[in-house]
């Protein structure tokens, strides 16, 4: 059984029909890449899965349960954690307070180990733990956003364009981190415009076009696919 099954969802912004029957599956332990041009509906898909939006038709099934109309805050407790587009760190809280906030839903009390974990994954954050998050560089903020999402101990991590706005040197680092997180058993749904990098670390991928899934295949095949090469990888 798939960890997450998105089936035929239609999501609207008022009258704007943003998702027109999107379907895909994510199995436990996989890294799935969702690629597509600006405005294709990638963010909307993540918002629908994470409960910030409700699909008008279709269903989102997580661990066998229909979560289409479950509130976002409850889904965090169920193990779905999202790193929003543009990072969304709490600029006026310190790094450590941001991480604390990530563990907000957990009631098991002891987050010391998880903090230690986060810091071992991102040593730079430990050096800056008393610093206000707003004063971090773009790359560090991205690390913080990811580390914060991990604090809720998710089983499914939704990443919305983690490489956006980062210098090329930093982009490599971000994708390495994503791989490391996956190797620790967290399933990852990765939304990217940077298809090249995303497909290198993903197991499978889906190409979204104007609110519909246009192509779906293994990452290796997608990298060879002519349309994908032309449109998203910039290879002629």
């Amino acid at each position: 059984m798939a960890l997450l099954e998105v089936s035929e969802i239609h999501t609207y912004y008022g009258n704007i029909h943003a998702l027109k029957g999107v379907s895909f599956e994510v199995d436990s332990g996989e890294i799935i890449a969702l690629i597509g041009a600006n405005g294709a509906g990638k963010t909307t898909t993540l918002r629908t899965i994470s409960g910030l939006m409700e699909p008008r038709e279709g269903a989102v099934i997580y661990e066998g349960e229909d979560i289409s109309s479950t509130r976002a805050d409850l889904l965090v407790a169920k193990g779905i954690s999202m790193v929003p587009e543009g990072r969304g760190v709490f600029a006026k809280l310190t790094v450590e307070e941001n991480l604390d906030m990530g563990a907000y839903v957990r009631r098991d009390g002891d987050i010391k180990d998880d903090l230690k974990n986060a810091y071992s994954l991102f040593p730079r954050l430990e050096e800056r733990k008393k610093q206000f998050a707003g004063t971090l560089s773009g790359g560090e903020q991205q690390m913080l956003a990811i580390a914060r999402a991990l604090m809720s101990k998710p089983r499914l991590l939704l990443l919305d364009e983690p490489s956006m706005g980062l210098a090329p040197v930093l982009v490599d680092g971000v994708f390495e981190t994503v791989q490391r997180i996956a190797s620790e058993g967290v399933t990852i749904l990765l939304v990217e415009q940077n298809a090249h990098m995303a497909l290198q670390i993903a197991d499978r991928g889906y190409v979204l076009q104007s609110g519909e899934v246009a192509i779906s295949d293994t990452a290796a095949n997608l990298q060879q696919n002519e349309t994908v090469q032309k449109t998203y990888l910039g290879i002629d």
Partner: peptide, 17 residues
């Protein structure tokens, strides 16, 4: 504090805003 900063992100943290 989270809501004051960003309501959407607060929701993503699992806060019932």
């Amino acid at each position: 504090m989270a809501i004051r900063e960003d309501e959407d992100v607060a929701t993503a943290m699992g806060i019932d805003t």
